[in-house]
């Protein structure tokens, strides 16, 4: 708290302007109903954090936070959300039993880990100050640490991530058990299996010149209506017109002389 108050000028103003927004967004993330809104608020929190990093002279970290987390990780989240749950009625009920205690345990465990890490890094240590850390430039200083002292953990983490990605691919990959039919085989099958009408593609809707609306079934060469010419959506809605009036038997074909 002491150090916060000593920072003067624009940085303080920036902090007191953005920090409440970030906290609000973080709380909102938990409370909003739609998953996409939640993801958006999380992205906003990440961007605010990045601004704080930049304000504290950790330029590289701030920018990378945006590129990696906001730009890539959150975007993938959004991607999945949109692909899977476009429906606005996202289910809020628990589908897997016992998820709540697991989640609470994980959260507490993660929090404890963070606290212990931060304590390990700060308690009983004197900060050496930015000037020494950034002596040869912020990026160069980070690079030196990453590629010398922390190169082993760095590589281990990357190996872990690659393993995870490969594992996800292996789990999600669907192996074909039979060879994919070629176009020729598909064509042969169409002609060999029952209906010639299907072989040439389904008929379009509309009854020749008498009625060409999409909700009127087409007539087959023998004069019967073809239900397959109507879109399944229209059928499901019950929007198909009774086609019996268009059948050849019922059509009045007598010619009336005009006087």
């Amino acid at each position: 708290m002491q150090s916060l108050l000593t920072i003067q000028g624009p940085e303080t103003a920036l902090f007191w302007f953005l920090a409440p927004l970030a906290v609000l967004a973080a709380i909102g993330m938990l409370l909003v109903k739609k998953a996409v809104h939640s993801a958006l608020l999380l992205a906003w929190v990440m961007i605010t954090l990045a601004i704080f990093y930049i304000a504290q002279d950790a330029l590289f970290l701030g920018i990378v936070q945006v590129v990696v987390y906001t730009g890539a990780v959150m975007m993938l989240f959004l991607f999945i959300l949109m692909l899977v749950g476009v429906d606005s009625s996202d289910s809020l009920t628990e589908t897997i039993t016992g998820l709540r205690p697991i989640a609470i345990t994980a959260a507490v465990g993660f929090g404890g880990l963070m606290v212990s890490l931060l304590g390990h890094a700060t308690l009983g240590r004197e900060p050496i100050g930015l000037d020494i850390a950034n002596q040869s430039g912020n990026v160069q200083g980070l690079a030196e640490l990453l590629f010398s002292k922390y190169v082993w953990p760095f590589e281990v983490v990357s190996a872990l991530l690659i393993t995870a990605a490969l594992g996800a691919m292996v789990l999600a990959h669907h192996q074909r058990t039979n060879p994919r039919p070629t176009q020729r085989e598909q064509a042969v099958n169409r002609f060999r299996s029952g209906s010639l009408a299907g072989a040439a593609g389904l008929p379009g809707p509309g009854v020749f010149a008498r009625h060409n609306a999409v909700d009127v079934p087409a007539l087959l060469p023998d004069g019967t209506p073809a239900p397959s010419s109507i879109s399944a959506t229209l059928k499901a809605r019950g929007d198909v017109i009774d086609s019996s009036q268009f059948q050849l038997d019922n059509v009045d074909t007598t010619v009336v002389e005009e006087k």
């Binding site: 042969v188 002609f191 060999r192 029952g194 209906s195 010639l196 009408a197 299907g198 072989a199 087959l220 060469p221 023998d222 019967t224 209506p225 073809a226 239900p227 397959s228």
Partner: peptide
């Protein structure tokens, strides 16, 4: 028989096996 004439039955010839 209007009920089943929605589809035109193919003339399957066994002279030539098109496969």
């Amino acid at each position: 028989d209007q009920n089943e004439s929605n589809t035109v039955q193919p003339h399957i010839s066994n002279d030539v096996d098109i496969t």
